[in-house]
């Protein structure tokens, strides 16, 4: 069952250009994703493609100058600001991307205990630390005393003990060693197998492949493809969108060959398909209008040429 549905989400920011002039910058345009109970959806794409913004929009923690259109519903009901405030941290938990999200003035053990809603908070915190291989002395440390990997495991611990039904993990793995990554990913799989829904925002496609059910590929603020995990295989011929293929081929374990250019900036988006300027198979038609998302071979794609 779908627990979280994001439909046609667009986000723009009011920005001051010069003196008192303002302009509206589109950062996410007509984005659709669905989280199913018991499923892990991995969201991959370049930085600046709107992955973290999506997470922040779901939790209702975007800055004040953000304009949001489209709908987000949770458990069949529209997610209003009031509902977001009551659900975050209890039913919907975020594992933030930056390790700066830890309170610099609070011992990390206490920060984790704060998230425990039922039962013995100290015991729960110690159990999760042991599981993530954080030594017993770590609970008394302050964030500045932790290495990057230890701080990340602390953030992960807060979500694990919270008992949430939807977990949104924003880049939980970079900088961790393989043993801890495996442990963290197994935790996500366990969440999902117990009926939770997990959104794993990552650029580590390889890790995502080991646990995710579906993969959504983001580019310049929109979903270009949603594919079952099996499609990420071989030289990517089963993938639908040319950007997904390029991303797959650029991995070090594949060809490690980058396509030139960079993602367009939000204030300078192409009028048609957002990927057209870098696309090897783009035609004149691609520059006319942004293609709609359509069903294709058990997945979805936003490309008129995809077969």
């Amino acid at each position: 069952m779908s627990i979280l549905v994001v439909e046609n989400l667009s986000i723009s920011f009011n920005q001051y250009t010069e003196s008192l002039k303002q302009k509206n910058v589109n950062v996410i345009s007509s984005l659709n994703v669905t989280l199913e109970e018991g499923e892990i959806l991995a969201v991959v794409g370049a930085s600046g493609s709107g992955k973290s913004l999506l997470a922040h929009a779901i939790l209702g923690i975007l800055p004040n100058n953000a304009n949001i259109s489209g709908t987000i519903s949770y458990d069949g009901e529209i997610l209003t600001a009031a509902r977001q405030a009551s659900l975050r941290g209890t039913e919907i938990a975020l594992i933030p991307q930056s390790v700066n999200y830890l309170d610099p003035l609070m011992r990390v053990g206490n920060q984790v205990r704060n998230s425990v809603k039922v039962g013995d908070a100290v015991a729960a915190q110690r159990k999760v630390f042991e599981r993530l291989r954080l030594k017993s002395g770590v609970e008394n440390m302050y964030p500045f005393q932790l290495s990057g990997g230890m701080a990340r495991r602390t953030l992960l611990s807060t979500a694990i003990v919270s008992g949430a039904k939807v977990i949104i993990a924003d880049e939980p793995t970079p900088g961790l060693d393989p043993v801890v990554i495996k442990e963290a990913l197994e935790n996500f799989r366990e969440f999902a197998d117990n009926g939770c829904a997990v959104m794993l925002i990552t650029h580590d496609i390889e890790s995502a492949l080991t646990i995710a059910d579906k993969i959504a590929v983001f580019y310049a603020g929109t979903t270009v493809e949603i594919a079952p995990v099996e499609n990420f295989n071989g030289d990517g011929e089963a993938l639908r969108h040319p950007y997904s293929k390029a991303l797959w081929r650029a991995l070090p374990q594949n060809e490690f060959i980058p396509i030139p250019g960079s993602q367009p900036r939000p204030n300078n988006l192409p009028s048609g398909c957002l990927f057209a300027p870098r696309c090897p198979i783009a035609t004149l038609e691609c520059e006319l209008a942004q293609p709609e998302m359509r069903e294709l071979r058990n997945g979805r794609v936003r490309c008129i040429h995809a077969t």
């Binding site: 991303l247 650029a250 980058p258």
Partner: peptide
């Protein structure tokens, strides 16, 4: 580590 595969390459 924080970059996507294309930018990394």
């Amino acid at each position: 580590t924080m970059l996507d595969a294309i930018t990394q390459a």
